[in-house]
Computed example of a mutant assay.
Amino acid sequence: MTASTEKAPRDLVLTEVGLRDGLQLEAATIPTTVKIELAVAFDQAGYRRIEVGSFVSPRAVPSMADTGAVMDALRGRVRAELQVLAANVRGVEQAAAAGADVVNIVVATTETMNARNAGCTVDEAVGIVEKASGRGDELRVAAIIATAFACPYEGPVEPEVSLGLVDRVVAAGATRVTLADTVGAAHPAAVAQLVARTRERHPGLDLGFHAHDTRGMGLVNALAAVEAGVDGLDSSLGGLGGCPFAGKGAAGNVASEEVIGALDDLGRPPGVDLDRIAACSAHLEDLLGRSLPSRRLALFRATGTAR
């Protein structure tokens, strides 16, 4: 293929999910002021999307009880798109009232995971996407296809199941869809296949990928998704986080420093300052009082740079 016929790389947008997916399982309380400071630091480092938190029951996820306060402090202060997660219609209403740009709604591929994660059926979860999309306001709706490759309760998920669910949430009004390897069970070939088939069926869709690192494949899966044509990747400071219903042994998200560093090295710089994000991860690691799994963070600690 000659240079004149090669396709230009897609504009890749990274989403920092550390404030929501990263912190939601933590027993340690991170002050609201620190969350705000971190979000501002993400914005200054070059992130164009930040997942600020979630509007869910504070009894179920107490670490997210201050999402509204964080949103209040960030509106008009950052340039990045601010997104939140909602588990039901009430959460969608709270997201709209808080001035979120995007609300993420999780729709898992299996009935068991939907019941455990959101207390609803697959049909009901798709219905939340439809109701949120039909509000008629400026709130944009994104769907996260959880357990897109495997479910901790029902086992491997066939690609046709995930593809069918993508079809349903797009028909329901989702303007962005993220394929999530919730339990870290995928491998690069499976990721590339599902991304390519989704792209073929929905060529204009804003398509993302969300990796977990349970089997040490999070980064290579994320890079496989980029090669296959996704528009965005999720990642979390230091590799923090995870789903509370992902089962025993499930690990956190792929680390932001590792994603940014790898993309820089491969000539696909995402426009986010690697060392500034590594410094944020180091600060959060200190606050939590324990080591985070990111290898680039360990390098930053040892040498003063994550490069």
Results as ranks from 00 to 15, higher is better:
residue 172 A to K: 06
residue 206 D to Q: 13
residue 270 P to N: 01
residue 216 G to T: 04
residue 231 D to G: 14
residue 283 H to E: 13
residue 240 L to Q: 00
residue 203 P to Y: 12
residue 272 V to H: 00
residue 281 S to M: 05
residue 274 L to I: 11
residue 173 G to S: 09
residue 220 V to S: 13
residue 256 S to N: 02
residue 196 A to D: 07
residue 178 T to K: 01
residue 178 T to L: 08
residue 216 G to L: 06
residue 256 S to R: 02
residue 260 I to L: 05
residue 214 T to M: 05
residue 223 L to G: 02
residue 192 A to C: 12
residue 270 P to K: 00
residue 283 H to P: 00
residue 283 H to G: 09
residue 226 V to C: 11
residue 224 A to E: 04
residue 214 T to L: 02
residue 269 P to S: 08
residue 241 G to M: 06
residue 166 V to H: 05
residue 205 L to C: 06
residue 245 F to C: 03
residue 287 L to F: 09
residue 252 G to N: 04
residue 228 A to L: 09
residue 254 V to F: 10
residue 242 G to S: 08
residue 185 A to S: 14
residue 287 L to G: 01
residue 273 D to N: 13
residue 224 A to G: 13
residue 208 G to L: 06
residue 212 H to W: 13
residue 268 R to N: 02
residue 221 N to K: 05
residue 218 G to S: 10
residue 238 G to V: 02
residue 201 R to C: 12
residue 210 H to G: 03
residue 190 A to P: 00
residue 278 A to G: 04
residue 173 G to R: 07
residue 276 R to Q: 14
residue 164 G to L: 07
residue 296 R to N: 08
residue 244 P to H: 11
residue 244 P to F: 12
residue 221 N to F: 12
residue 228 A to H: 12
residue 211 A to K: 03
residue 276 R to E: 13
residue 239 G to L: 06
residue 286 D to A: 15
residue 181 D to N: 08
residue 270 P to M: 01
residue 302 A to W: 07
residue 210 H to V: 07
residue 300 F to C: 00
residue 294 S to E: 04
residue 169 V to L: 08
residue 215 R to I: 04
residue 176 R to D: 05
residue 266 L to N: 05
residue 195 V to L: 11
residue 254 V to L: 08
residue 239 G to K: 01
residue 195 V to T: 10
residue 267 G to N: 08
residue 191 V to H: 11
residue 284 L to S: 02
residue 190 A to D: 15
residue 167 D to V: 02
residue 222 A to K: 01
residue 247 G to S: 10
residue 259 V to D: 00
residue 197 R to V: 07
residue 283 H to R: 15
residue 175 T to R: 15
residue 204 G to A: 12
residue 226 V to G: 03
residue 282 A to D: 14
residue 247 G to I: 08
residue 235 S to V: 00
residue 170 V to G: 07
residue 208 G to H: 11
residue 259 V to Q: 00
residue 208 G to M: 06
residue 192 A to T: 12
residue 209 F to R: 03
residue 193 Q to C: 13
residue 265 D to T: 14
residue 220 V to M: 12
residue 207 L to H: 06
residue 187 H to M: 11
residue 229 G to M: 08
residue 186 A to M: 07
residue 187 H to Y: 15
residue 191 V to N: 05
residue 253 N to G: 05
residue 232 G to Q: 14
residue 169 V to C: 07
residue 230 V to G: 04
residue 247 G to M: 11
residue 205 L to N: 02
residue 279 A to G: 01
residue 198 T to E: 10
residue 186 A to V: 04
residue 193 Q to A: 15
residue 209 F to C: 02
residue 187 H to T: 11
residue 243 C to H: 09
residue 182 T to L: 02
residue 224 A to T: 09
residue 281 S to P: 06
residue 248 K to H: 14
residue 190 A to T: 12
residue 280 C to P: 01
residue 240 L to Y: 03
